[in-house]
Computed example of a mutant assay.
Amino acid sequence: MFPKISDQLFISVDSGDQKEAGMEYKSRITDLEDESILMEVPIQEKTGQLKRLHMGDELSVYFLTDGGVKNFFNTYVLGFKEDVVRMVRIRRPEPESIGKVQRRSFLRVNAGLEVAVQTEHNIRFVTRTEDVGGGGISFYSDADMAIREGDMLSCWVLVPYKNGNLEHVPFKGSVVRIQQLDNGRKIMMLKFEAITDMERQKLIRYCFERQFDFRNR
């Protein structure tokens, strides 16, 4: 079962911020394209507030079919279309990927990429990522590193592609969660706060290359 024009979509934004991840927004399909779905800008029903989405944002979506059955799929924001009203273009899912069970973080992949970090107090260090995605990254840090939840970090990550090219992707991100490991080290989970659409697309491209590799193993 695939959603149709005028069907309502119920949307959650995949985020390390628990408050944001728990918010649900509603939209409506305005058009269907070969590779994408156009929808209205999502709205939070309780507050009437429109949700500002960014290219690469990862979304968990469901729509209802007969009997109130929820049909889930994961997607991400491809871009926008300006018409009489502003519309959001999201990736059209494969029919076989639509299911009755919600799955999150499909666009995040495990990857040990080199990342340079600068804190608000001008502490600089280089480490490795634990995973990367269109909405943020996680990286390892030493136990004594003075970083707290809510801190804003300036970073760049070195992204290698299958064709041999390398890209430096700069961004600013906020620490949304810190995980303590048994060996004393920590994993810092960042949500992107300032990243250009072009740089975000470089990370998304890398994630899809990695997913393709995983599927073909």
Rank of each mutant, 00 (worst) to 15 (best):
E167L: 02
D151I: 01
I178H: 05
V175M: 03
M152Q: 08
N165R: 13
G173T: 11
Q180C: 03
G173I: 13
D144V: 14
K172T: 12
E149I: 09
R148C: 07
R177Y: 15
Q179C: 05
H168R: 15
I147R: 00
M145G: 01
L153F: 01
I147A: 01
C155L: 13
E149P: 02
G173Y: 14
N165Q: 14
M152H: 01
Q180K: 14
C155W: 07
W156Y: 13
L158G: 00
K162S: 11
V175I: 11
R148W: 01
S174V: 15
V176D: 04
S174A: 14
L153V: 03
V175K: 04
K172H: 13
K172F: 09
A146P: 15
C155N: 06
N165S: 15
K162G: 05
H168F: 12
G164T: 04
Y161T: 08
K172Q: 15
N165K: 13
K172I: 12
E149F: 02
W156Q: 11
G150T: 01
F171G: 07
E167I: 07
A143C: 10
W156N: 13
S154W: 09
P160R: 01
V169R: 04
Q179G: 02
K162L: 13
V157M: 07
L158W: 05
A146D: 15
M152N: 03
E167M: 05
K172Y: 09
D151M: 02
A146L: 13
Q179I: 15
Y161S: 11
F171Y: 11
E149N: 04
Y161R: 11
M145N: 06
Y161E: 05
A146F: 05
E167K: 05
C155Q: 06
V159Y: 00
G150E: 00
V176H: 07
G150A: 02
E167C: 04
V157P: 02
N163H: 04
W156K: 12
N163V: 00
G173R: 10
Q180I: 09
A146Y: 04
F171C: 06
W156L: 05
R177F: 14
G150L: 00
N163A: 02
S154D: 12
F171I: 03
V157G: 01
Q180T: 10
E167T: 10
R177G: 10
G173S: 11
W156T: 07
N165P: 04
S154R: 14
V175G: 03
Y161A: 10
S174K: 12
V175F: 04
V159C: 03
M145P: 03
E149T: 09
Y161M: 09
I178P: 06
S174I: 14
N163Y: 07
A146E: 15
P160C: 04
V159A: 01
L153C: 02
I178N: 05
V157D: 00
E167N: 06
D144G: 12
I147N: 02
N163T: 01
M145R: 13
Y161N: 08
K172L: 12
V175E: 02
S174L: 07
G164W: 10
L158M: 11
V169C: 09
G173K: 10
N163D: 15
V175L: 05
N165D: 15
R148I: 01
G164K: 07
I178Y: 07
P160N: 04
H168M: 14
V169A: 08
N165H: 12
V169N: 08
D151S: 03
D144P: 06
G150W: 00
Q179F: 12
I178Q: 06
V175W: 05
Q179M: 13
V157F: 02
